[in-house]
Design a protein around this nucleic acid. Structure first.
Lengths: 136, 136
DNA sequence: GTATAAGAAGACTAAAACGGTCCTAAAGGT
DNA sequence: ACCTTTAGGACCGTTTTAGTCTTCTTATAC
């Protein structure tokens, strides 16, 4: 239960690699894929999601590639994970504002809401800058 | 991300139903399935898992069925969820004691360990008795 | 302006997980 | 014996995961 998918792992490794490059350096997707040991075309999709929400910038054509889109200190782990895996929702019923038909089940809802809040809190508290810094 | 499956939902509804029955009453799986609006054969599997870890008792033959196996106050939501969904593991690498090959990734591990700890803490803190009591 | 070097976008695919069903066996009651 | 009820395993369709492949579009270099 609650497993991070491969996509999520590649996403984190990919953006950490970008965050660790010298400022201004443009990285090819092929380079990132090799460095992070991720399938290139799959990683390309992930970076498209990143580009869409602006946490990476993309440049096409010769000399193109990717750079980090914002300061790593402003990018949270939650943003990265949610960019590729969607919002953190432990129970489907939380989608429609926690309203659900079954009485018995709804007793459990506050618990899931609590779980969600805690996970979000933790992931929001970790920045890419921190993660990229610690090691090396 | 982090969604509870149908199996998990049926599991919770099913054991809550049992916990709400008068002491000593034996419930048929068909009865529980109807009451909780779950597919009977599927719910039967779930209750097999429950019986295996002793949170419900099963009796075969005429007059058989299921009863709660321990006092609802001693059964935690975590036990119920883990019985059918397996252990709560947000990142695969936590399986082998948190040891993993990739350096970059391992910075992230403490975060997942924290997530795991918080979720476990919350689910361990909720008993079936509490959930069964609140409503009705 | 044409070749070339990238990323963007969507169709497609294999394998696994989810969400069950079905059938046979085993155990207990009458 | 026969019926009732759970136990266990085989099976099966659908969805999600984890990718690949092909075709654009954009940008640079010559």
């Amino acid at each position: 239960m609650m497993e991070l998918t491969r996509k999520g792992e590649y996403a984190i490794r990919g953006i950490l690699y970008l965050a660790q490059q010298p400022p201004g350096k443009v990285s090819l997707i092929s380079e990132i894929a090799e460095a992070t040991d991720a399938p290139q075309t799959f990683l390309a999709k992930i970076f498209q999601s990143f580009a869409k929400i602006g946490i990476v910038s993309s440049y096409r054509g010769t000399g193109g590639g990717f750079t980090i889109g914002r300061s790593p200190a402003t990018i949270t782990l939650r943003e990265v994970v949610e960019a590729v895996e969607g919002p953190i929702i432990p129970n489907r019923c939380l989608v429609n504002g926690g309203a659900c038909e079954r009485g018995e089940e709804c007793n459990v809802h506050p618990v899931w809401r609590q779980v969600q809040a805690q996970v979000v809190r933790i992931l929001d508290g970790v920045t890419i800058e921190e993660l990229a810094r610690k090691k090396r």
